[in-house]
């Protein structure tokens, strides 16, 4: 199928697909984080609005999850550097 396109169309298509893939990755991460943060923050029966503590927990959850990720990666690099120089 691809060889029916000229070069410009091919480039456009591949750029389009890359964008789609990047978007799909972001969407998939958001679904994953929503699930994780829902389980962590919403422990009771859902009501007609979030309690103040539920909302605060949800708002902080994403940033703390990403902080955790950066914290762990930094620790791993520190340990690797220490083992190379030690």
């Amino acid at each position: 199928m691809a060889d029916k396109f000229d070069e410009a169309s091919q480039k456009e298509l591949s750029k389009f697909l890359e964008n789609e893939q990047a978007q799909a990755r972001v969407q998939s991460t958001i679904h994953q984080l929503t699930s994780t943060c829902w389980d962590k923050c919403i422990t009771g029966t859902p009501a007609s609005s979030f309690s103040k503590s539920e909302r605060g927990c949800l708002e902080n959850c994403v940033d703390r999850f990403l902080d955790t990720s950066l914290f762990l990666i930094n620790k791993i690099q520190e340990q690797r550097d220490a083992s190379f120089s030690g």
Binding site: T36, K40, C41, C57, N60, R64, F65, D67, T68, F71
Partner: peptide
């Protein structure tokens, strides 16, 4: 696993 075990109630910083 470590986020589940260590960050029980996400606050404004770690």
């Amino acid at each position: 696993k470590c986020f589940a075990k260590c960050v029980l109630k996400p606050s404004s910083s770690l």
